[in-house]
Amino acid sequence: MNNRPLHVLHVGPDVDSTGGMASVIGLLCGAPGTDVRSSSATTWSPASRTRGLVPTARLLGRLAFGPRTARPDWVHAHLSEGGSFVREGAVLVVARLLGIGTAATLHGAQFIVFSRRHPRLVRRVLAGCRTVFPLGPHAAARVAELSPATRVRPVLNPLDLAELAGVPASSRAADVVFGGEVGLRKGVDRLVAAWPEVRRAHPEATCVLCGPLGDVPVTDLPEGMTYLGALPRTELLGVLKSARVACLPSRDEALPMFVLESLGLGVPVVTTPVGEIDQLGEAQGVALTDGDPAGLAARLVALLAEPDERARWGGRGAGWARENCSVESVTRVLADSYRAA
């Protein structure tokens, strides 16, 4: 292959919508300094009444019947689960038939469960990829099991470290910050149950919950805990930057951006070893707990009690994020993988 810039088309949610996948696509398309020219195509948006059918059909038509010179060198789909494997999966299959390079990143918290329920569909989509980028070892092992011939290259989601460095700390400072849907999947009920024990050890400690309402009520929160609502991204990052500890005691995840962004900001994280989170630990500034409220409270109490130790955890997290999650390091991995395939 020659050394001309590759054109990579990232396919997935509308980059102007909220969510980790949209943020990742936006970062990859705006990344400077590689021999890859990236653009995006929307196959789904929250406003879609057809669950993405119309934009997906338009994209398929553009690839199949548009000028050959306008076709990308690679189509890189961003997959979660469910309808994503139909929409973006169809785009991958058609791109492969047209001789376009095909790749996919697996973002979904339910990917492994979904792949067991629908192995034929998932196998067909994965087999249509030259390279698959899982976020960690569990999804990587499942891809290898379903499609042994497909190249697998684990890669983390990218962080815009310059953005994080430039975010002003919020005046609404809190000791502990939760970010995500306020529901059972994200483990908010566990944090609510643990908080009174934290307050007994640290009577002035404060905790804020940030995110859209889910299936956990916020009308009767314990003393010292406040619900701030679904904050704009910059405001959420400002609240997080001013925190002492980030907390996400989830029951089900892939590798959430809230955890990575907390580490990028130098804020230690208390979380649960679900999904691909269990590849992280003390070396990355992450304190893992099984989610039991007593154990969760003990982790929070310990980190709040020792400023020097907390600073060491935060420093380890920031260093790890800089080395492994910067948008520059992630785009280098992707570019090398495109060239090598």
Rank of each mutant, 00 (worst) to 15 (best):
M1W: 15
N3Y: 02
P5K: 10
D14R: 10
P32H: 10
S40F: 07
S40T: 09
T43G: 02
W44M: 13
P46I: 13
A47I: 12
S48H: 15
R58M: 12
G61Y: 00
R68C: 07
A77S: 09
L79E: 08
G82Y: 04
S84Y: 06
F85P: 01
V86A: 11
L92P: 03
L97V: 10
L98W: 01
G101P: 07
A104Y: 12
H107G: 01
Q110D: 15
Q110F: 08
I112L: 11
R120D: 14
V125P: 03
V125E: 12
G128P: 01
C129P: 05
G136F: 01
R142I: 05
A144T: 14
P154A: 12
V155W: 06
N157K: 02
D160A: 11
A162Y: 01
E163V: 03
G179K: 02
G180C: 05
V182F: 04
G183W: 05
R190D: 01
W195E: 14
P196F: 02
E197T: 15
R199A: 11
H202W: 08
L209H: 05
L209N: 06
V216T: 08
L221Q: 13
L228N: 11
R244H: 10
V245H: 14
A246H: 15
P249G: 03
L263S: 00
G266A: 06
V267N: 07
V267M: 09
G275T: 04
I277R: 00
D278T: 02
A283T: 01
G285N: 07
G295T: 05
L296F: 03
R299D: 07
D308W: 09
R310T: 10
S326H: 00
R339Y: 09
A341Y: 07
